Simulated scan of single mutants.
Amino acid sequence: MRFEDIKKDIKDLEKIGEGWRGVIYKGKLGDNILAFKIPKSLLHRNAIKKEGSILKIVNREGIGGKLILEGDDFIAYEYIEGQPLKKVLNRENAKKIFSQLLEQARKLDLIGISKEEMHRPHSNVLVDKDLNVYLIDFERSKRTQNLQNVTQLVQYFLSEGSNYIPPFDKKALIEAAKEYKKNKTEKNFEKIKKILDL
C-alpha cells in the first residue's frame, strides 16, 4: 500500500511540516485524525519505515504518537494536538514538562532505544493544552547499547534548560550524570531527579 493509494480517502489533507527526510501531512482517515509522514525521495523511504518500527516499540511505553498505519512509503500516527516545546515552555510550567521529559528519557534508556536528539528537545517535543509531553520525530532513533537519552537531556538542563528552573548544583549534576552513564540504575537516575528537584 502506497500513500497515493489512500490519498483519495483522506479528508481535509494539509501539509503541516517538513524535515530533512520527510514531509508531514494532517488528515482524517475513517474516524481518525492522523499525521502522515512521507519520504521526500526514494532515498529516504527506509528512514521512514525504520521510524515506524521504532514507534511500535516506544508506543508500548506510552511514548510518541500512536502508530496507526504503515505503508510502503509512509507511516501514519495519531495526530497530536500540541505546540512545539519552545512555544510553550516558561518558568511556571517548566518543572512539570521537564519531569515528564526526564521520565520518558529514562524509559527509552530502559528499552534500549536512543533518540539521538534529547540534548535539543525544543523542536521534537510537543506539549498539549494540559501540559502533557509527546516526543516526536524518531527518524534518527536507533537500537543501541550506547544509550544517552537521560545524559543528553542533562546537557540541555545544564545549558538552556537551566533558564527555566530554580538554580541547582551544576557540578553535582555533572557528577551524577557521569555515574548514571557508567551505571544506569534507578538509584543513579533518582539522584539526577533530586538534584534538579524534578
Rank of each mutant, 00 (worst) to 15 (best):
K96Q: 10
R120H: 14
L110S: 08
L101I: 10
E103M: 12
E92Y: 14
S114K: 09
L101T: 01
A94G: 05
K96L: 06
H119G: 04
N93R: 05
E117V: 08
R106V: 00
Q104C: 06
K96F: 02
S114M: 11
H119T: 06
K96P: 00
F98L: 02
K107C: 02
R106N: 07
E117D: 15
L108N: 01
R120G: 01
N93G: 05
H119Q: 14
K95T: 11
I113T: 07
E92G: 11
Q100N: 09
L110H: 05
D109S: 01
I111C: 08
P121Q: 12
L108S: 02
E116F: 12
P121K: 10
D109L: 00
L102M: 15
E103A: 11
K115L: 13
I111R: 09
H119D: 14
I113P: 03
S114T: 10
K96T: 06
S114F: 12
L110D: 12
D109W: 00
R106L: 14
Q100I: 04
M118I: 07
P121I: 07
M118T: 15
A105C: 10
I111A: 07
N93Q: 06
F98P: 01
A94L: 06
E117H: 13
I113N: 08
L110V: 08
I113V: 15
S99P: 05
I113C: 08
G112V: 05
I97T: 02
P121C: 11
M118L: 15
L110E: 15
D109K: 04
S114W: 11
S99V: 03
G112Y: 06
G112K: 06
L102K: 01
A94M: 06
K107E: 00
L102Y: 07
I111G: 04
S114Y: 14
L102D: 07
E117I: 08
L108D: 00
L102S: 04
K107N: 04
H119V: 02
L101V: 07
M118E: 12
G112R: 09
N93V: 02
K96C: 01
K115P: 02
P121M: 12
A94I: 02
I97Q: 01
R106S: 04
S99T: 12
M118F: 10
I111D: 06
Q104M: 15
K95S: 11
I113Q: 09
I97G: 03
Q100D: 10
G112F: 04
L101M: 15
K95G: 04
L101C: 11
L101S: 06
L108W: 03
K115C: 08
L110Q: 14
L110P: 00
E117K: 11
L108F: 00
E116S: 14
D109M: 04
A94K: 02
Q100A: 09
Q104H: 10
S99D: 13
Q100K: 13
F98M: 02
M118R: 09
L101Y: 03
S99A: 14
K107M: 02
L110C: 09
F98C: 00
A105S: 09
I111E: 08
E92V: 13
Q104V: 05
M118V: 07
H119I: 06
